[in-house]
Amino acid sequence: MVTDTSSGTGPSALDSPTSTVDRRRPARRLARRRVPAPLALPAAVALAFLVLPLVGLFVRAPWPTLPQRLTEPEVLAALRLSLVAATLATAVCLVLGVPLAWLLARVDFPGRRLARALVTVPLVLPPVVGGLALLLLLGRRGIIGQWLDKWFDATIPFTTSAVVIAEAFVAMPFLVIAVEGALRGVDDRYEEAAATLGASRWTTFRRVTLPLVAPGIAAGSVLCWARALGEFGATITFAGNFPGRTQTMPLSVYLLLETDPPAAIVLSLVLLAVSVAILVALREKWIGSPA
């Protein structure tokens, strides 16, 4: 049964470019229907596990007062701040993360494996710890922050910049890993060809490599943006909580939960709707759906 299915959709289907997929559809569909029970059951449980909690949000949402709650200035301020901060954080990740991904994928430097491992640390670190670490580095008494305070009279914590920094810190690994994966998947003979035709490494990167990994960068950016949008722990620890300046949607959801759970549900739904809408839109535009 298992071998049957795998040979049906096997390597040929995976390798085939998108244009030929449509012609093969009927055959693939047949093969796809035969799902072995040991895979089908856990897959169904996993899907239910991921979706049912969201159903809870919908069931308990205070639908009658929804429109009025949505237009409250505080909600709009938090939503605006969330979108702006997540977008800026993604921009920071792109500017710094793509070159890092290229370095990890293309340059054989000593300590590359260590560097790659270090990049993933923010993924496993509890965000609150990440926030504390940022505070100890960039805070008013931080290793770098004390000099910023002394020389420029600038303090980073409790500002919108701190929100962007916290979000970029937790989200950058998503981008770096996605782009590095894309770079490794690209046939490097294109880059070699460009080099033999006299292109410098920088030109090759701009004119050959970047266009080749564009889908990977797009996918990484979307992941990165989504992670930044949902960021809570590092933000509340490093940037604090002040309406309009550092209070993003997740922070306001958490605080409203203390006194006004229905309002927290409303905000959660907004966050959910916004992220689903943007993810779907970007997916169709840039990444192309695999189904």
């Binding site: 604090g240 002040f242 550092t246 922070l251």
Partner: peptide, 10 residues
């Protein structure tokens, strides 16, 4: 204040 912290220890 610069921040409204989520609990007293924070």
């Amino acid at each position: 204040p610069v921040s409204y912290e989520e609990n007293v220890r924070a």
